[in-house]
Simulated assay, not measured.
Amino acid sequence: MSQQTVNFPNTFAEIYGFENVESAKEYHMMIHVKNFMLPFEEQLQSLVDTFYEVSSGLAGRPQAVMKRYFLSDAANQAGLVREINSDERSALSIIQQPPLDGSKVALWAYLVSDIEPTSTQSGTSVVFKRGKYTHLWTGGLSNEEKNSQSQTALIFKRYIKRLSEFDMTLERDCTRTWFFVSDIDNRYSGMVRARNDVFDSCGLTCDTHFIASTGIGGVQQDPSIFVQMDACATGGLDNGQKHYLYASDHLNRTSEYGVRFERGTYIDYGDRRHIFISGTASIDHKGDIMHSGNIINQTNRLLENIEALLKEADASFDDLAQVIVYLRDPSDFQIVRKICSERLPAKPLVIVHAPVCRPGWLVEMECIGIKKTEYPEYDSF
């Protein structure tokens, strides 16, 4: 693996590369604006220019699979983001979660070499195949039903139909979801009820498994949209390739307090392990909030929890390829950035303003890891 930061006049890019393999090379990239005096259109264009310049120089000439834009004002900015990405084949996610470094926009991009991605459903999904595996990444699923519960139910209905087009199912093949909920303190419960109902209908229980997930505050361009879902799924896995992470000495099962998602999931391929850590906060093994009101201690505790989940996957912070940090209070940015720079140096990382699903949680973090492994009984990624 490699980590590097590339500087440009108006931007800088943090890049994690999983390159030293014979099969596909993978990259996670976080691009940040550093010239805050530029108007939004110029900040956005600088990000896009940086993405193309950096990606064109990466080994294997990788293709973008997923792009997520973090915006400061979706109502006035999302349209231009869609316009400037109209020819992209990657799945596109756009959400108002203001970057807390002072910029108007930041970009996370996931890229894979040696693929021919195919865009589906007007660019909200991209599918690519490698060997026996089919990978489907989806961004920006939403609708205008009357409340968060009915919107979530329809999102799942449409997503399940999309999965079926590739001979996949939610319960077998979906690995990771992200839910962005506007006014999360009031609308999160509706999203959870709908998700629980869907899982019941699919036979997903605490005795089988759930799906790794983040449920976090986020605002769409259209104020009538209360919920957006992004997701990734992989079809063609053998029994035993997908595993779930619990770290039960640090965390409890989410079903114990009425929500249903896995703390983490990892997939073993013949040459690597993909690790998806769900949104993780300062919580103990009983499900109680730890260090109420103390941002330093909450940040350190969530890092301890993530470290325990990674350890269960025989991984560590060194294997992290991407990190997103969500803060309820923007004034905590400098403190959290300092802790992250000390504990997770040089990682592709972005810190955004997004309330967590419980008001007592001041900070939440999610991440994706890639670890080199050898499992000859499985096909390579």
Rank of each mutant, 00 (worst) to 15 (best):
A64M: 13
R82H: 14
F128A: 02
R260Y: 04
A233L: 06
H285F: 02
F166V: 01
D185N: 02
G123A: 05
I211M: 07
Q3A: 00
Y159G: 01
V219S: 05
L154N: 10
T373W: 04
L237E: 03
L237I: 00
F51N: 06
D271M: 01
K311G: 11
I289Q: 09
I115F: 08
T124V: 12
P9I: 00
A233D: 03
S150F: 10
L349T: 14
E171C: 03
I306H: 13
L320Q: 08
D183I: 04
F51H: 14
T208H: 09
Q121H: 14
Q4Y: 03
S150K: 14
N196K: 15
P359M: 00
F180N: 11
R337Y: 07
I267H: 10
L327Q: 12
V363D: 04
T134L: 00
L245R: 05
H28G: 05
S72D: 07
Q221K: 14
E145D: 04
M168K: 01
S93G: 12
D173V: 06
L71R: 05
E262C: 07
C367S: 15
G240V: 04
G215V: 15
S182G: 03
C367G: 07
K132R: 15
I368D: 11
H274D: 08
L136F: 12
W137N: 10
R68D: 00
N297T: 01
D249S: 08
N35I: 09
K129C: 01
S316Y: 02
Q97L: 01
Q43K: 09
A153C: 02
N239A: 09
S150Q: 14
S125Q: 13
G57W: 02
C202V: 12
T265G: 07
W361Q: 12
V336M: 03
V336P: 08
L309T: 11
S103R: 08
S119F: 10
I351H: 04
V259D: 09
Y266E: 12
S142T: 13
F51M: 12
S201Y: 08
R89E: 00
A153E: 15
L71Q: 06
H285A: 09
I306D: 10
V323K: 13
L80A: 09
S148Y: 02
V33T: 06
E26H: 04
V127M: 06
A321M: 14
V192N: 09
S255R: 07
L100K: 14
I351Q: 02
M29G: 06
I115D: 07
F276G: 00
W361D: 13
A194C: 04
T118Q: 14
S119R: 15
A194E: 08
Q63F: 13
L100N: 11
F276C: 06
M30N: 14
S93H: 05
P355G: 03
L251K: 08
I339T: 05
T254F: 00
L141S: 01
K161Y: 14
V219K: 08
V105Q: 05
F261M: 06
S380P: 10
R61Y: 11
L100S: 12
V363T: 13
L107F: 07
R162G: 02
L362E: 10
H274G: 02
S46G: 03
C174R: 05
Q97D: 03
S2G: 03
Q298E: 06
N300M: 15
F180H: 13
E364K: 02
S255C: 12
R272A: 14
L92A: 03
H135D: 01
G287E: 06
D73Y: 09
